[in-house]
Design a protein around this nucleic acid. Structure first.
Lengths: 203, 203
DNA sequence: CTATTTTATGACCATATGGTCCATAAATTG
DNA sequence: CAATTTATGGACCATATGGTCATAAAATAG
């Protein structure tokens, strides 16, 4: 079933790129949600026939998991770039907040976030999904805590501010922005809300 | 179709209480989501036959709207009680935050929030739903702004803190808690996050 | 070349879906 | 009582659903 694309294999070669298919499927699930996405939707987006899709990914759920994994990996890659230990820690956190403001403003805002949508739609009904979401949130919170810990050791955090506590607060703020922006993508309000946080917790 | 239960009507009287049916339907939509809830699910929860349900509520979507309206009304009732102008404003905000911490902790946390789930699942695909969610968020933010405005005029807010900005921040924090708590209902983390906010913005 | 292995295609399937309809029951009115 | 109005339950319907399978096509091995 799984094969190395780099090496010459026996049978008829695959005519599509599985990564591209996952990327396309991710887009549909992202804008439409899991249950509201039908097989025909996925076939149209990926340009696959039913048989090919099932042979490659097992079923709709399997494909969804792959798409979710890709979305999460992309998110963490961006987060890692921003919170790179070689860069200024507080500046990294600031960049991260700025990105969320950016993503939840204007036209693209209404698309929301695949992780948040999935957490709400399947969170407590699908163990495989739940585990992935939990792990993602935990990882993100851990990275934020680490960055804030560095900021603190550099004396850049206001007195009495605990990195872990602020990290949890930021998690709520960031994921909350994705919810609120579904019906209100006013950029300046988000910017002000984020600025007030940095003003009060940094120094 | 719509009739006054208080007044005597001509034909056979209804054998069920529509409000109870809406309440039951709300429960199912709340734990299961819109698309994942089937007609049989709703019939079982409400103890109605198909005919009765369709006669009373039009269709699944109509019933959902009624359930959503009820959920929103309940939420705003609680919010109003907490932010009652006759009570201490900052204390009211504190109570509101405490209630969200409560709701997102322990066993019941994983049920999430019907508004947040709906915003993510149907937000940008269903105009009637979107309007309701937008209005709810707008109302909630307005009430928080008003309460914070009162707190400020009583000198209970830290210097340079804008009520509208904090209200938006609180919106994100509160709705974000509902997302994060789907996979992590650790109470103490939420408590600490909320406390840090009150410590820094109140006085 | 033939045999083998793998993929692609789309017809096909069983079932679940939301929604409609109607015969019957039950209550009210005159 | 008869007539009227409404509610009920469930049979029924068209369609959409996720999923399977037989066959054809393309590549390699010998």
């Amino acid at each position: 079933m799984i094969r190395q694309t780099s090496q010459r294999m026996r049978g008829r070669p695959r005519e599509f790129d599985p990564d591209e298919a996952i990327e396309s499927a991710m887009g549909v699930f992202w804008s439409t949600g899991y249950h509201a996405t039908s097989l025909p939707d996925l076939l149209a987006a990926t340009n696959l026939s039913r048989g090919s899709l099932y042979a490659a990914f097992g079923d709709k759920h399997g494909l969804f998991l792959r798409a979710l994994d890709r979305y999460i990996a992309d998110s963490l890659t961006r987060l890692d770039a921003e919170l790179d230990p070689r860069k200024d820690a507080l500046e990294g956190v600031r960049a991260c907040l700025a990105r969320y403001v950016e993503r939840t403003s204007g036209a693209g805002a209404k698309r929301g976030c695949l992780v948040v949508a999935t957490a709400m739609e399947l969170g407590s009904h699908d163990a495989e999904v739940e585990q992935r979401i939990r792990r993602f949130f935990r990882t993100m919170e851990t990275r934020l805590t680490a960055a804030l810990g560095r900021a603190k050791s550099e004396g850049r955090l206001a007195d009495g501010i605990e990195p872990a506590t602020v990290a949890r607060l930021l998690m709520c703020v960031l994921e909350g922005m994705r919810v609120v922006s579904k019906t209100n993508s006013d950029r300046s309000a988000s910017e002000a809300a984020v600025r007030i946080l940095l003003d009060r917790f940094g120094k």
